[in-house]
Amino acid sequence: MASPTAAVITPTGITAPTYAEILAYLQAKYRSIYGDDVYLEPDSQDGQFLAVQALAISDANAAVIAAYLSFSPGTAQKAALSSNVKINGIARAVPTNSQADVICIGQAGTSITSGIAEDEAGYKWALPALVTIPPAGTITVTATCTTIGAVSAGIGQINKIVTATRGWQSVTNPSSASMGAPVETDPALRARQKTSTALPSRTVLEGTIGAVASVSGVTRYAAYDNDTSATDANGIPANHLAMVVEGGDVTAIASAIAAKKGPGGGTYGTTSATVLNVYGMPITINFFRPTYRTITGAMALKALAGYTAAIGAAAQQAVSDYVNQVAIGGGPSGTVEWADALTAANSVPGSSTFKLTALTLSGPGGAGTPDVPLAFNQAALCTPASIVLTVT
């Protein structure tokens, strides 16, 4: 029989006594040996010695629990989670560069080798190694910022040709750039691991979503399947699939959709790419890049004992982080949730040193009521500085 101080694995999982329970058990055993009148308060030598032993046992139990949980992608963390997801054929995303779909216009047949474009802020954007202008005189490709991290570029801001090439006349980005990301977080990797299991799914839509989610560089995505005979509320035509995809190469995304989508159904979106199907025939795939909507907010805190400016900044960061991870289109609710932002602010370390007295969120259409709605192809964007903090 296991010791009352040990971690125990049962059919329902693993459990372990708390530090207080372990200490109480050791004190009871000590008194059974030396008598009930022995003094074991924290200011005694024997009491401190038992506390050290209890802490060591508690730490060992915590390590055992962490090891037990590391074998499941649902509970593993950091390196263990990175190892677990390999069984699904995926890996933790490394820091990425911003990407933008750009339209290159020029004379038919022009070859652009290692082309570089520049935005209005001076950042360089690299085209694919070789781009050939088709007979139509225009082609859409994905340009990658040469500077790693979250480099932004609004519509039309990537408009300067750096590597002058005969026949290449102009370049512009019809949609905002998808900004680069830091190392993929544990929650994001768990969500992607869950989605990746849909690759061999029995439904076409799940397989298509899984294929797009596995494209390198893709960070967020949403799928809308209008299988009716009429245009739906989002403006998606009858019998069309609309995918909204953030990040990733435009051709790779189109290839993933083409490989998995059902026959006879069309694709809908403002970004287009022509790829070859399994029979070598050209097929045009359409999808959306998300339109970014800036979310701002106002937060009022009442400072209590121990409050510092760093704690207030952490609350601003927490709200900003929540907004930036909201699913494209706002997820099932279609909104940036006020209650979730409130929870994020109240969950920061040191939250006991303040009282959150007010929080409002606003979008392009004004203040939320209290949630801020997003269209099906919109993604929320927020910085800590966008959350105005008032402390009393």
Rank of each mutant, 00 (worst) to 15 (best):
G280E: 03
S3V: 09
T308V: 11
A51P: 09
A93S: 07
I295D: 05
L342E: 11
P349R: 13
A177W: 13
D43G: 03
F49D: 08
D232Y: 08
Q45H: 07
G366T: 03
Y39M: 01
T172K: 08
A28L: 06
C382K: 00
T96R: 04
R220C: 09
S362F: 11
V372C: 02
S347E: 06
S58R: 03
A254D: 03
Q378R: 07
G106E: 06
Y224H: 09
A385C: 00
G265W: 08
T219W: 12
K78F: 07
A213L: 03
G154M: 13
F376G: 13
Q193K: 05
Y292N: 15
T163N: 14
A20N: 13
T291I: 15
T12R: 15
T195F: 00
I133K: 10
S83L: 06
R289F: 11
T203R: 01
E206A: 04
A91Q: 05
D249L: 01
I22L: 11
I295A: 04
G350W: 11
Y322S: 00
Q157Y: 02
Y279P: 03
L276N: 01
P370A: 09
T163F: 04
A117G: 15
T343G: 01
V52L: 10
I155H: 12
A67W: 02
A256C: 05
P364L: 13
A143N: 10
A93T: 06
V102F: 14
S272I: 05
G156P: 09
V391S: 14
E206I: 03
W125L: 10
F287E: 04
L69C: 10
S229P: 01
T185S: 09
S196V: 05
H240N: 01
Q53N: 11
T142A: 08
I9S: 15
V372Q: 06
G122T: 07
L304R: 13
Q45S: 13
T353R: 15
N61A: 02
I65N: 10
P373Q: 05
L127T: 02
A254G: 03
G334H: 01
P263F: 08
G137N: 15
G235S: 02
A177H: 05
D119T: 09
M1W: 02
K261G: 05
P135D: 15
T291W: 14
G269H: 11
D36I: 01
V204I: 06
V52R: 14
T96Q: 05
V64F: 14
L374H: 02
D225A: 06
G363Y: 15
Y19I: 09
A256S: 04
R220K: 14
G74E: 14
Q378V: 08
T231I: 06
V38H: 10
V151M: 06
Q169M: 13
S70C: 04
V244A: 05
S214P: 01
G122Q: 12
Y268K: 03
V131N: 14
E41C: 12
Y19E: 13
L50D: 05
E246W: 03
V323F: 00
A341C: 15
A375T: 15
